[in-house]
Amino acid sequence: MALNFLIQLLVNGLIIGLLYGVVAMSFVLIYKSSQVVNFAQGEFLLVGAWACWWLLAKFAIPFYLAFLLTLIFMIIFGILVQIIILKPLIGEPIISIIMVTIGLSIFFQAIMNWMFGVFTEPFPTIFNTESIKIFGLNVQTAYLMSGLISIFIMISFALFFKKSRLGLAMRATAFDQQAAQSLGVSIKQVFAAAWAISAMVSAVAGVVFGIVNGISSGIAFMGIKVFPAVILGGLDSVLGAILGGLAIGLLEHIAHYVDVQFLNVGNLIRIAPFYALIIILMIKPYGFFGTKDIERV
């Protein structure tokens, strides 16, 4: 029984971890290309999830159409946020950048609570079968789908950065902004693209999370859970973000298992990633894949 429970938790951890990885990836994308630490990443998930829910509930359109419209909306949303809020702050000290994204997160959370209420709203059912049996384990269809979508996003990310022109321009900008600019890369476009893609990918994660657990302002907490993941993997490494997300997802579910089976302290699933964060910052502040800033403190 205990073993079964552990395996179930590990599978859940893996799938949640994949989602963390996706969110962490979109966080790293913004940080890498425009050096902005986005504390409002969780609110991107929230806005995306609510937008999709609203389209489904209000107009009763098919899911894939609502999903597509949500993605288009989020692209515009991301670009607008970048142009209106972040652009005037280029070159400001880091505290200003951090605070403006924190301000954004408060603002959007309050607006979302205002528009859609504070209670958890379930997504309209999308799958007919509730769960599938794989190797004797009950895996919810929604979980399976979320895992598949996450892997799909990761692969398309890799392809985008390896093959496409814009992806190459973004990598060049992240590597050396001035050199990229002098070679004719439009930094403006790259920044806007980074925010648009990040918002879009976050929205996908938000919708998936909403299908699994229902939508509430709790989704925005994903944006905070992302910090342990990105610190573990290194702030400017996409691969690190994915692995970090997986590790944090597994870690919190293992912590939950230890908690339930042996310790009975409760709440460890929520708090364990932050202990991990502090420990990582103490021993390896640039994470496992991050670039080392060489300066001694």
């Binding site: 809020i85 605070m99 403006v100 924190i102 301000g103 954004l104 997160s105 408060i106 603002f107 959007f108 959370q109 309050a110 607006i111 609570n113 205002w114």
Partner: peptide
């Protein structure tokens, strides 16, 4: 509204 105004004022 109170909460949103805090965020807006910061920005």
């Amino acid at each position: 509204i109170k909460e949103a105004s805090i965020g807006l004022v910061i920005i």
